[in-house]
Design a protein around this nucleic acid. Structure first.
Lengths: 126, 126
DNA sequence: AATATATAACGAAATGTTTAGTTATGCAAC
DNA sequence: GTTGCATAACTAAACATTTCGTTATATATT
């Protein structure tokens, strides 16, 4: 999957949040100082070319929506990251962060509970 | 922390791997088609300006080494990612990937073992 | 010392990204 | 229908990144 540049990513984050919208809707969600209308419009056009968004036309105005979901992009992005920084081992990545104490005991236990649930689900499927 | 561009990141990956080296050493670790010597040299200079590497001079030749460790950069990069894509919740990120079945039962159990170890360590410290 | 070699610094061209002015077109208000 | 308004398309300029040829300089070789 192509990578998003900084500006493109910001537009995508808005679209993922609002699900669909016209350029002016997207613009509303930018913090000050807001970029010019045309700046957002151009980025949207690039995102269309790259296949990240598409639009539905109402006469001359276009309502844009994501074609690539935030989940899909997250997945691809994190997989590359884990590949480049943790020799493709998700396990190494998680344990690195556990050791770095970025996550508290409570959080770790919460994660473990979720993972136990997944383990059971997968076993049940056999 | 500043972000690394694509080309910069590739040079850093080599430096992190070899720990220190002259431009020609870095060049050796690139896959074909290798970039020109000067391309790597220029990128190294940019990385020095950005504070990611420094060098030790032996007369006119420079031996380069990372100033920012791979761990530091990983940490900063993943924190931004988790912030942007999982509302800053590491837990959400892990459980998303568990659900996506990107990790096998075996791997999850391994991660759980590591995390249990961390939980115990942290409790012991109290 | 003269020449060759290796290196970093410099400069510049090619490419990619970001920003926004200008233009053309359709729609609404009059 | 003419005017004004909103919009997307087009265009171009500013800026950033990537690539590498050229140059200057130090060191090694003869």
């Amino acid at each position: 999957m192509r990578e998003l540049t900084r500006a493109e990513e910001e537009v995508m984050q808005v679209l993922w949040k609002i699900r669909k919208g016209f350029v002016k809707d997207i613009l509303k969600h930018f913090d000050e100082p807001k970029p010019a209308y045309n700046t957002v419009s151009t980025i949207i056009r690039i995102l269309q070319d790259k296949g990240f968004v598409d639009h539905k036309a109402y006469g001359r105005t276009h309502e844009y929506f994501p074609v690539v979901s935030k989940d899909e992009y997250s997945k691809s992005h994190l997989n590359s990251f884990v590949n480049d920084y943790f020799s493709n081992s998700f396990e190494k990545m998680v344990s690195f962060f556990a050791r770095e104490k970025e996550i508290s005991v409570k959080e770790m236990q919460e994660i473990m509970k979720i993972m136990e649930g997944e383990v059971l689900k997968q076993k049940a499927m056999k």
